[in-house]
Simulated assay, not measured.
Amino acid sequence: MTSDRFRDLVRQTLFRPHVAARALMEMRLPRQELWLSLGLVSILNAFVYSLSLQLNPPADPAVALMPPAFHAPVLFALFLFGALAITVVALYHVGLGLGGAAVSMDDLLVLVTWLQVLRLMVQIVIVVLAFAAPVLAAMAVMVAAIWGAYILVGFVDAAHRFGNMFKAAGVILLSLVAMVIGLSAVLSLIGIVVMRGG
């Protein structure tokens, strides 16, 4: 992918998510490469997140009560990859259950992976802003969360050919329920690994 194409795809994702989703799905990238890409971006996101915690420790004492996976880069990377994998599976099967028409799970896999690429870019910007302008960094987090939700709804709508953003939002909400169940299992496994390691 050329730099110009990359910028165009970023611009389309931000302002025309349906168009970007179709372009990404039409690439028909091999499934193995997509899973490897998702794993890589999970590692990079975990590294940037852990770096941000070290450079700018949060003042909220509740952060200290978070699971160990959120403090150890390797564990957090595993947790994030597991969460994203569950997201892909949930969005695909829940969407099909609600009448969606995704050609294959690869459609959701490429879209979720691309969203994580953008999330990594946003995280890097926020880390820099946290030093120069903390207030702007906090605002950027809020804007990114809202805009990211809008993009995800558009992506799910495009993947399942609903033509209905509300139905796509319903798929996401139901998938969240499935994710909570799945992530509880992932966290339990991570806890077991930590206990054995100790």
Rank of each mutant, 00 (worst) to 15 (best):
V88C: 01
F15T: 11
L183D: 12
I126C: 06
W114F: 11
F162T: 06
V19N: 07
R16D: 08
G99K: 02
Q32R: 14
D157Y: 01
G163S: 04
V153N: 06
L51D: 06
V10N: 02
Q116M: 14
F155M: 08
V143Y: 10
F131M: 10
V110C: 00
L173M: 13
V193G: 01
T2P: 10
V125L: 13
L136M: 12
L55F: 07
S50A: 12
A130W: 11
H71D: 05
A158T: 02
P134E: 05
P57K: 02
L14G: 01
L65R: 14
I43V: 13
A132R: 12
Y150E: 08
I86R: 04
L96F: 09
A102I: 00
Q123F: 06
V141E: 10
L78W: 08
A46Q: 02
P73I: 10
L65H: 10
D60P: 00
A77E: 02
G148Y: 02
V110P: 00
A46G: 04
Q123C: 00
L176I: 13
A72E: 15
V193M: 04
M66V: 04
L187K: 08
G99M: 10
S42T: 10
S42A: 13
F79A: 05
T2C: 07
A46R: 00
R196T: 08
R28P: 09
A145T: 14
V153D: 03
G97Y: 04
H160G: 08
F79G: 05
I192F: 05
V122H: 00
L173K: 12
V94N: 07
L51G: 02
S42Q: 07
A140Q: 06
L176F: 15
S3G: 14
L53S: 06
G191C: 04
A178F: 14
V128G: 14
V74D: 08
L44H: 03
R161T: 02
P68E: 12
A137C: 07
A64L: 11
V171Q: 04
V10Q: 02
L34H: 00
P67K: 12
D107P: 06
H18C: 06
A20V: 05
L75A: 12
L189E: 09
A101N: 15
L109Y: 03
V110A: 05
K167W: 11
